[in-house]
């Protein structure tokens, strides 16, 4: 026998279920008067620096139906590429930008929407710059463990071409599943859980 390492196992994930909105966005779920506002409903204020953009899209199942009971969270750098987190030691992020948003998908259309700013570039581990991107996390009934992916921008062709994550995607036609489409300042990012257009999900 040798000494035990004493490592603990991570608590197992379980589905967020159909009623995730009761816990995470109670005002959206009609449970008012408990919290003033739903967390993550607003990422910016009047003084937030950077280019204002809208991110929207749907989460689509294997039958082509948008999920109307999902919850999407995003996490991103500010316009200068800094994260509003104590673990980013490179510098002070914009205090008027949370970097984190949470949105239930609409019970009518299945659409999620975030008002945010376009993120700047942050370095990869080896110092190379990553392309501007937004981390996306999806939970819903039927999803046993939250799905991580990334949204990249269609108007960042050069940066995307040198992005270390995009470069790792072996089947090159799947790169486009991570690139939003744009019209004006509105970026649309549909997430496909299965099928021909299945989004590249990350094991991070």
């Amino acid at each position: 026998m040798v000494q035990e390492l004493g490592q603990l196992k991570e608590t197992a994930s379980q589905t967020a279920g159909p009623y995730v909105h009761i816990g995470c966005t109670p005002n959206f779920a009609g449970i008012t008067g408990v919290y003033e506002a739903d967390l993550g409903a607003s990422m910016v204020n009047d003084r937030t620096r950077g280019q204002r953009i809208t991110i929207c899209g749907r989460v689509i199942d294997g039958a082509g139906t948008p999920l109307k009971d999902a919850m999407v969270e995003i996490w991103q750098a500010d316009a200068a590429g800094f994260y509003n987190s104590p673990s980013d030691l490179r510098g002070q992020a914009d205090p008027n930008f949370t970097g984190w948003g949470r949105c239930p998908t609409s019970a009518d259309t299945g659409e999620y929407v975030f008002e945010t700013v376009k993120p700047g570039r942050a370095p990869f581990k080896d110092g190379r710059l990553m392309a501007p991107h937004i981390t996306v996390w999806i939970v819903a009934r039927g999803i046993n463990i939250g799905l991580h992916t990334r949204l990249y921008f269609p108007d960042e062709v050069e940066a995307n071409a040198e992005d270390p994550l995009l470069a790792r995607i072996e089947h090159r036609h799947r790169v486009e599943t991570l690139i939003a489409s744009v019209e004006g300042s509105v970026y649309t990012f549909d997430i496909h859980l299965q099928g021909e257009k299945e989004t590249v999900f990350l094991d991070i």
Binding site: D61, A122, M130, L193, F201, I204
Partner: peptide, 16 residues
């Protein structure tokens, strides 16, 4: 119908 079928892309953590 809600489970990804393709392998996840493994990536060592970045700042994100």
């Amino acid at each position: 119908l809600r489970s990804p079928q393709k392998a996840l892309l493994a990536l060592d953590n970045t700042l994100s």
